[in-house]
């Protein structure tokens, strides 16, 4: 049987043009294990950029970009075959809809990937998801009964450890009861090209680099500096303080001291 899994060492978005036809800043290369954050106001072109990657644009979208896989343009047949399969997606709209237990379903996913020991892979993914979720769930919990944060944690763990797509696109992690730092760590180790569209400063600084969008095109590419990394540590500590305060309020403790 044909395998649907893909490997990719480099993906290049060859530069296109902005909404006024002016050329984009430059080509952008993506490598496995690298996390890139996309930033910019609504309508600045983040979604178009992601859609261009997903559809393997070949100067046939409004941006005029081309997508190269391992340095080459895929031929039309290969291109059609790959479209929509290159990119695994996690967005805020997604829910589990199957009426199955978590362990059974993840085992099924592992079997479909022809894992040597599907049950062991499923246990590993459930453990990873529980490490991300604020409140753990049992392996026999029903998929549809998971809370928003638990679902999100399971989706992230499964995508990182079991998805066949070499590119993982995430639309915001925050506000979902998920440990962001651990999620990022898991994603980096997944050896996928990870792209996160976000407005969250902690998440943006957690990425190795940031693409800043303006008027439909990439305006700047910023690698994370050493000073920014120190800022990240500081912000993370502030966020932890925020969570501790939230917890104390939830437990009805005094916070005025």
């Amino acid at each position: 049987m044909a395998t649907d899994a893909l490997t990719l060492a480099r993906l290049t978005v060859a530069r296109g043009r902005d909404k006024s036809g002016r050329p984009e800043a430059g080509d952008v290369d993506f490598a496995p294990g690298q996390v890139t954050a996309l930033l910019g106001p609504t309508g600045s072109g983040k979604s178009r950029f992601l859609a261009d990657i997903e559809s393997l644009a070949d100067d046939d979208t409004p941006s005029g970009r081309r997508i190269l896989l391992d340095g080459a343009l895929p031929d039309p047949d290969r291109r059609f075959e790959l479209q929509g399969r290159l990119v695994a997606q996690l967005t805020q709209n997604m829910n589990f809809v199957l009426d199955l237990g978590v362990e059974r379903f993840i085992t099924m996913h592992a079997e479909s990937r022809q894992a040597a020991d599907p049950a062991a892979v499923a246990r590993q993914i459930i453990a990873a998801a529980n490490a991300l979720a604020g409140e753990p769930f049992a392996p026999d919990a029903q998929l549809t009964q998971l809370s928003g944060g638990q679902s999100r944690a399971l989706m992230i763990a499964d995508a990182a450890l079991l998805s066949w797509s070499p590119v993982l696109l995430i639309d915001e992690i925050e506000n979902a009861g998920v440990d962001k730092a651990r999620a990022l760590d898991l994603l980096v180790k997944s050896d996928k090209i990870v792209v996160i569209a976000t407005h969250d400063p902690v998440l943006a600084l957690s990425a190795h680099r940031r693409l800043i969008f303006e008027h439909g095109a990439v305006r700047t590419v910023r690698e994370r500096s050493a000073a920014e990394k120190r800022l990240l540590t500081q912000l993370t500590e502030q966020e932890a303080e925020f969570s501790r305060l939230r917890e104390r309020l939830r437990r009805g403790e005094d916070v005025d001291s």
């Binding site: 049987m1 044909a2 649907d4 059609f80 075959e81 479209q83 929509g84 695994a88 997606q89 996690l90 967005t91 709209n93 997604m94 829910n95 589990f96 809809v97 199957l98 379903f105 993840i106 099924m108 996913h109 479909s112 990937r113 679902s151 399971l154 989706m155 499964d158 995508a159 079991l162 998805s163 066949w164 797509s165």
Partner: peptide, 25 residues
């Protein structure tokens, strides 16, 4: 767009089991 990546992949696998030559999109 309404279901998880995991469900999409398992579903796709089931389709592949039924039809191993079609392009699935």
């Amino acid at each position: 767009d309404l279901v998880s990546q995991a469900e999409r992949e398992v579903y796709r696998h089931r389709i592949r089991q039924m039809n191993n030559r079609a392009v699935i999109r």
